[in-house]
């Protein structure tokens, strides 16, 4: 062996490779996270600055019905968006995986997804306006016009639209790895199609199904932009509350508490996911 391993040289190499990136993470990820945690125990001063006294009062405020309601709405958006994505995305993943032109279909799936996020949300605003396309179509059948925007429905629709590929891709990966012999075996044993699917196919796609659900659920409940643009103040999610505390009412301490709460909730759902999937699951997410 040559000079490779004196302790000094090893330390030097670690410093060169890990040093800059590690320092960056400490400075711009760890430190801000700690600052948010710290701020969440402080109080809003008369002019919106952070002051003492210390305490848990911001967390106590979270229990106020107003804020619980926003949290419930976020959960509802997250759960419903995940369910709808599953209904739309699960069969689609099968279709793509078994299609001879699957590269092209994947490309077509990703194309709208790679245009700007705001444009995707804006597109729905255009469609759902009172004098927009949907109402024009309804009008042709003598219906409406309906007030489709702003509404919870609009927020949900745009959320699904925005995050659908996050669901399809992991399921697709699972389907690609699928062992179809199991299905044939089930048929050979005389199982009916539904039963054969439930026992031979569905369990094999669990990893993709779970990963897709987490990937839709977390951003869906954490976003504020969709509710901001398509809810116009009538649909208030936890992300909107956070933005309001920092951007309008200047209660940074409470905004920080909301952030810690949201972060905690996300980590909890990831923990549950990891319990279901094992450590590997987390890596699959990325």
């Amino acid at each position: 062996m040559n000079e490779a391993s004196t302790p000094w040289q090893r330390a030097f190499r670690v410093l060169v490779t890990v040093g800059p990136g590690g320092l960056w993470l400490l400075l711009f990820v760890l430190l801000p996270t700690l600052l948010v945690l710290l701020a969440s125990f402080l109080t809003r001063g008369p002019y919106g600055e952070l002051t003492g006294p210390w305490g848990f009062h911001n967390y106590a405020k979270l229990l106020h019905p107003v804020y619980l309601e926003a949290f419930a709405q976020s959960l509802l958006v997250g759960v419903l968006a995940t369910l709808i994505s599953a209904l739309l995305g699960y069969p689609l993943a099968f279709y793509i995986a078994r299609h001879p032109q699957r590269d092209l279909l994947l490309f077509l799936l990703l194309l709208p997804f790679l245009t700007n996020f705001l444009i995707r949300v804006y597109a729905w605003l255009v469609l759902l306006q009172r004098e927009g396309l949907v109402n024009a179509l309804l009008g042709a059948f003598g219906l409406g016009p309906l007030i489709l925007y702003p509404s919870f429905f609009a927020v949900l629709l745009a959320t699904v639209y925005t995050f659908l590929p996050f669901f399809v891709l992991p399921v697709y990966a699972s389907v690609e790895r699928l062992d179809w012999q199991l299905l044939e075996a089930a048929y050979d044993l005389g199982a009916r199609p539904v039963k054969a699917f439930l026992h031979a196919v569905l369990p094999q796609t669990y990893p993709g199904l779970f990963a897709g659900s987490v990937l839709v659920f977390i951003p869906a409940m954490g976003t504020f932009v969709v509710a901001d643009l398509l809810g116009a103040g009538r649909v208030v999610l936890i992300g909107n509350l956070i933005q309001q505390q920092f951007g309008i009412t200047r209660d940074w301490a409470f905004g920080a508490a909301l952030s810690v709460f949201l972060m905690g909730f996300v980590l909890l759902s990831l923990y549950l996911y990891a319990r279901l999937q094992g450590e590997r699951g987390l890596k699959d997410l990325v």
């Binding site: 801000p32 948010v36 954490g222 956070i242 920092f246 952030s259 972060m263 980590l267 990325v286």
Partner: peptide, 18 residues
């Protein structure tokens, strides 16, 4: 994993604080 999983609002406000 923090920047990957934490909602971007939280990331935005924590950087703003920093």
């Amino acid at each position: 994993y923090i920047p990957v999983v934490v909602p971007d609002v939280v990331m935005g406000v924590s950087l703003l604080l920093l």
